[in-house]
Design a protein around this nucleic acid. Structure first.
Length: 425
RNA sequence: GGAGAGAUGUCCGAGUCUGGCCGAAGGAGCAUGAUUGGAAAUCAUGUGUACCCUAACCGGGUACCUAGGGUUCGAAUCCCUAUCUCUCCGCCA
């Protein structure tokens, strides 16, 4: 969430930055409630101070054998008064908090201003788009033909937007996970975590999925847990409510988890194949950094993610999301898009974001600075990679004229030496 | 699932029976200073967070002893609920 003090002090700037997202937020109402809260607080604290002062005298008076009945009568009045005021303060707090949780992060001031994804900015391109001397197939056709993907039976087991991987397809998925984790933990220097795949409401609120996007989550009836939509949730919450020593920064974590998304707003989009499923595997990167280092760390994080595609030799481009397209909690985001022949364009496969202190405030995740002060860290995350989309990209970019799929060199050892996937194998 | 025990500051740990002077003893750690050629050891001092008032990171105030309620003039201390941890039993990958 945003810092209420910052909203108070730099109201115009906050409103201006938020307006770049397109959308209106109850800043004025918030400030009015905040002012009211402080008035009430001053009043109640004054009474409480009086109560405390008198209370301290009670044992003294009793020792002297004096009658306290009248005093208690007055105190009872004050006590009722504070209860009433406390209640009003609590109502203010709840309202303020509700508003704050519903206001997105301010985009970084240098992020390109734009309405929607059409105004995103291409930063760089890597690799050559494959040229086929035959008609390339979409992964949902080729994968089924090779009997490594099965959408129909997955739908039978569960429903639409689920995929079953079979044989070398299942091995390919597992190989990619291992390859990604191996690369991240060795060259990347990240610490591997294997977290819970269910998260409670507090964790989900900390990273910003709740309260606003509950409709897009799969939740359990009892207990009040949610299937994680990304490893960002458990990883960013690892150190929630903690104060880290400055030397511990940056904290660099990586994890493989399945991800579960209701895709509530995506009816009719990407209905075929692996691009948009209710369940998909992903290897995630999360960094907790010193505030001054977070933008450098975002560049590094993005390069860490790109490294995976480079090793797999998959063509991609990096784009900077404009203010109208960045996520709710984000201050700045680079998307990495892999070339997908069936779409005849680049498709998002990773999203690398600096949240600045927005999530850190929600998760109360702080560090002790060199001057002894406690401050909020900056949080970042990025996918490295979404495994399902990586498989789709591999199938399509590595397909051969005979309908076989070549396995990228970097992946062969993780495939137990398998170098190609062919029909009938 | 059944029975019991517990949760206190950065950590360890008193206090809880017998509610008040307990933001909380003591120790460790850490910081600063003294001592030293330098270090260790020793000694001295200091050492939570959030919010409010204030020009102020000076000062004052309020809250916080897992969380949320309750009793009371007053709660770390009494009562209720939840969560988590531990022990035993049962069940189980």
């Amino acid at each position: 969430m945003l810092d209420i003090k910052r909203i108070r002090q730099d109201k115009d700037q906050v409103i201006e930055l938020l307006s770049r997202r397109g959308g209106e937020y109850p800043i004025e109402d918030l400030l009015k409630a905040d002012e009211r809260r402080r008035e009430l607080l001053a009043e109640t604290e004054k009474i409480k101070a009086e109560q405390n002062r008198v209370s301290k005298q009670v044992p003294v008076l009793k020792k002297e054998g004096k009658d306290t009945a009248e005093l208690f009568e007055q105190m009872r009045f004050l006590s009722d008064k504070t209860k009433e005021l406390d209640n009003q303060v609590r109502l203010c707090d709840e309202q303020i908090n509700e508003w704050l949780l519903g206001i997105p992060n301010t985009p970084n001031k240098d992020v390109a201003v734009g309405r929607d994804e059409t105004e995103n900015v291409e930063i760089r391109k890597w690799g050559a788009v494959p040229q086929f001397d035959f008609e390339p197939k979409a992964h949902w056709d080729l994968g089924v033909a090779l009997d490594i993907l099965d959408f129909e039976r997955a739908a039978k087991i569960t429903g639409s937007r689920f995929t079953m991987f079979k044989g070398l397809g299942a091995r390919l998925e597992r190989a990619l996970i291992n390859f990604m984790l191996y690369t991240n933990t060795t060259e990347g220097g990240y610490t591997e975590i294997s977290p819970p795949f269910l998260a409670n409401r507090k964790s989900m609120t900390g990273t910003g999925q709740l309260p606003k996007f509950e409709f897009d989550m799969f939740g359990l009836k009892e207990p009040d847990y949610f299937l994680i939509p990304t490893a960002e949730v458990p990883l960013t919450n690892v150190y929630r409510d903690e104060i880290l020593p400055e030397e511990a920064l940056p904290v660099k974590l990586t994890a493989y988890t399945p991800c579960f998304r209701a895709e509530a707003g995506s009816a009719g989009r990407d209905t075929r194949g692996l691009v948009r499923n209710h369940q998909f595997d992903k290897v995630e990167l999360v960094k907790l950094t010193h505030p001054e280092a977070s933008y450098d760390e975002l560049e590094n994080l993005t390069k860490d993610a790109e490294r995976i595609l480079q090793k797999l030799n998959l063509p991609y481009r990096v784009i900077e999301l404009c203010t109208g397209d960045i996520g709710f909690c984000a201050a700045k985001t680079y998307d990495i898009e892999v070339y997908m022949p069936s779409y005849n364009r680049y498709v998002e496969i990773s999203s690398c974001t600096n949240f600045e202190d927005y999530q850190a405030r929600r998760t109360n995740l702080r560090y002790r600075d060199g001057d002894g002060k406690v401050k909020f860290v900056h949080t970042l995350n990025g996918s490295s990679m979404a495994v399902g989309r990586t498989i789709a990209a591999l199938i399509e970019n590595y397909q051969q004229a005979d309908d076989s799929i070549r396995i990228p060199d970097a992946l062969v050892e993780f495939m137990y030496g398998t170098t190609e996937i062919k029909a009938g194998k």
